[in-house]
């Protein structure tokens, strides 16, 4: 039976908004991979640490997430700096970064489990299920805010990388660190800034994860596959690409759920990835 236009439209809205989360999670990962040549698997664990901190502050100390994010994001930025100090101190290369950040993610997962237990946690808010009615469609408010925040961060980062000296210097270093250094670019200092920024974006993503998703330590790994696909489709180091790729994957998954079966959703993201790699369009 063919799905109705309302069902398809609603699925498209849900998918694009869900893709906002993919894009937001992909943002920091794409920057560190593309511009620092470090594949930071602990990005997901940092996002979940931020989510658990949001949960803890909200449930134990009754701090609204919109305020707790002001504490969490700087804390994550600091963690990003420490993490980069380790990479720098031990001269970690791209391949080694995979292993080291994987270990860091596992340690964070164990730490989260020790403190918050392995049980599912859910941060209940009165606005979690708010929606805006637009004709026959419903637009979930939280997911819409998430998409707007992801859009602002992606657009701002894109502008920063293209229009400012620091951004241009970072891109130049990623192209050829030695030549950039010859022009006076201090790649090491800029790398610290970028690493902190990536972790801070994980902090923002974590706040929304706490508000939208279910928390369990093992969930850290649930986003890994799809976000990697998003980073590659969106092109490494391209913040806007990450966001658009996230929305593309989210929409594709959601339409597959509406037309075929929900069980097909995971197949879709990787099929899109393979198709785009084979097609190799100019923007990818």
């Amino acid at each position: 039976m063919m799905p109705s236009a309302t069902l398809l439209g609603q699925a498209l809205i849900s998918g694009v908004l869900a893709g906002g989360m993919y894009g937001l999670l992909a943002l920091g990962l794409s920057l560190s991979w593309g511009l620092l040549r470090l594949v930071n698997l602990s990005h997901f664990a940092l996002a979940f640490l931020a989510a658990y901190l949001t949960y803890e502050m909200g449930t134990t100390y009754h701090i609204d997430p919109w305020w707790s994010v002001l504490l969490i994001v700087p804390a994550m930025f600091a963690i990003g700096l420490v993490q980069h100090w380790i990479f720098d101190r031990f001269k970690v290369n791209e391949l080694a970064s995979l292993l080291i950040t994987f270990s860091f993610a596992v340690m964070l997962e164990v730490g989260i489990q020790l403190y918050w237990t392995a049980d599912y946690r859910r941060f209940e808010t009165h606005y979690a299920t708010w929606s805006i009615k637009a004709g026959p469609f419903y637009i979930p408010v939280l997911e819409l805010i998430l998409c707007l925040v992801a859009g602002v961060l992606a657009w701002g980062t894109w502008l920063w990388l293209r229009k400012t000296y620091v951004g241009k210097a970072l891109r130049a270093s990623a192209e050829d660190a030695d030549i950039a250094a010859a022009y006076g670019v201090d790649h090491k200092k800029l790398a610290y800034l970028l690493s902190g920024l990536g972790a801070a974006y994980a902090g923002v993503a974590g706040t929304f994860i706490a508000l939208i998703a279910t928390l369990a330590p093992a969930q850290i790994w649930a986003w890994l596959g799809v976000v990697f696909a998003v980073v590659i489709i969106g092109r490494l180091g391209n913040p806007l690409g990450a966001l658009f790729a996230g929305m593309l994957i989210g929409a594709s998954e959601s339409i597959a759920m509406a037309i075929l079966s929900p069980a097909w959703a995971p197949v879709v993201s990787f099929s899109v990835l393979i198709a785009i790699l084979l097609w190799d369009p100019e923007w990818s």
Binding site: P3, T6, I13, S14, S254
Partner: peptide
């Protein structure tokens, strides 16, 4: 049927709503 660990239920909810059955049976975990 959906994958264990499914992240987004938006599209699934849209299908359940459209079917509008008298009873919803969910083989859910957690």
């Amino acid at each position: 049927e959906y994958e264990a660990g499914n992240r987004d239920f938006g599209a699934i909810a849209a299908r359940v709503k459209e079917a509008n059955a008298d009873f919803l049976w969910v083989g859910s975990l957690g």
